[in-house]
C-alpha cells in the first residue's frame, strides 16, 4: 500500500511518515499543497493523508482540484474540530476526517478501513489455502498459529492475496509497495518473495516469468 502524506509541518510530516512506514505502508511526502497535488495526480497512491492548513494550496483546494478525476480515498487532518469544518470536508469529497491531536493507531486503522472499502472488500479477513489473513490486525495465521512476517513481507502477501488470480507485475508491486526513497534494487522484491515461500510453503506464490507474481 502506498500512501502520500501532504503536511506542511516538517516535524509532523516526518513523524507520520515514520509511523506509517513501520506499519508496512510505502510512504511519500509532500510539504505543501502544490507538491501534494502534483504527486497525487500521478495516481500511484492507495490513499492520501491531507492536512487542511497549508501554504500555496490548502487542503480544500487540493481536494477540489483532485476530485473529479481521482477517486483515491482521502483522509483529512485538521486542527479545527468545528462541525461546519467537518461538513465542508465531507462535502468537498474527503472520505474521512481526523482532528489533531489524534492517536496514530487510529489514523492507521482508519487508513486501512478506507483502503479496504475502496478496494471493495468489506471483510477484513481473507482465506487462502488454509492461511487466514486478518487485514485489520495485519496478521497471518495457519490453524490459529500466527506466522511472523516483516511489515514489507506482509504487505506484499496481502497485495497479492487481494488480487488473487491476477498476475501482478513487478513494476506495479514496486509502485505500490515501495516509496520514492527506496533504492529499488531489482532483487529486493525477489528477496521478499523467497522469504515468504520459506515461511508459507514453496507453492503459495507462483512466478510467471516475464509477467510477475500470482496467487492462484
Amino acid at each position: 500500500m502506498r500512501i502520500l502524506v501532504i503536511e506542511d509541518d516538517p516535524g509532523l510530516r516526518r513523524s507520520l511518515s515514520a509511523t506509517l512506514k513501520e506499519e508496512g505502508f510505502a510512504v511519500d511526502q509532500a510539504a505543501d499543497g502544490e507538491e501534494g497535488l502534483f504527486k497525487a495526480s500521478e495516481g500511484l497512491y492507495d490513499a492520501l493523508v491531507l492536512d487542511v492548513m497549508m501554504p500555496k494550496l490548502d487542503g480544500w483546494q487540493v481536494l477540489e482540484q483532485l476530485r473529479p478525476q481521482h477517486t483515491v480515498p482521502v483522509l483529512m487532518l485538521t486542527a479545527r474540530d468545528s462541525v461546519p469544518d467537518r461538513i465542508k470536508g465531507l462535502n468537498t469529497g474527503a472520505d474521512d476526517y481526523l482532528t489533531k491531536p489524534f492517536d496514530s493507531d487510529e489514523l492507521v486503522a482508519r487508513l486501512r478501513a478506507l483502503i479496504r472499502r475502496t478496494s471493495g472488500k468489506t471483510q477484513s479477513q481473507i482465506e487462502i489455502n488454509g492461511l487466514l489473513i486478518d487485514t485489520a490486525r495485519r496478521s497471518l495465521s495457519k490453524d490459529d498459529q500466527e506466522i511472523e512476517l516483516t511489515a514489507r513481507e506482509y504487505s506484499l502477501f496481502e497485495y497479492l492475496a487481494l488480487h488473487r488470480g491476477e498476475v501482478v507485475s513487478r513494476s506495479l508491486l514496486y509502485e505500490r509497495l515501495f516509496d520514492e526513497n527506496d533504492n529499488s534494487l531489482s532483487n529486493l522484491l525477489d528477496v521478499h518473495v523467497s522469504n515468504l515461500r520459506k515461511k508459507l510453503g514453496a507453492n503459495i506464490i507462483t512466478t510467471r516469468r516475464g509477467h510477475g507474481y500470482c496467487i492462484e
Binding site: L12, S15, L16, A18, T19, A79, K100, P101, D103, S104
Partner: peptide, 21 residues
C-alpha cells in the same frame, strides 16, 4: 483561544505519535 489551541495541536500530535511509535 481557538488559535492558541490550534497552535498547540500540531506539536502535541507529534509528541503523541512519536511516543506511540
Amino acid at each position: 483561544t481557538a488559535d492558541a489551541s490550534h497552535e498547540l495541536r500540531t506539536p502535541l500530535t507529534i509528541l503523541l505519535s512519536e511516543s506511540q511509535r
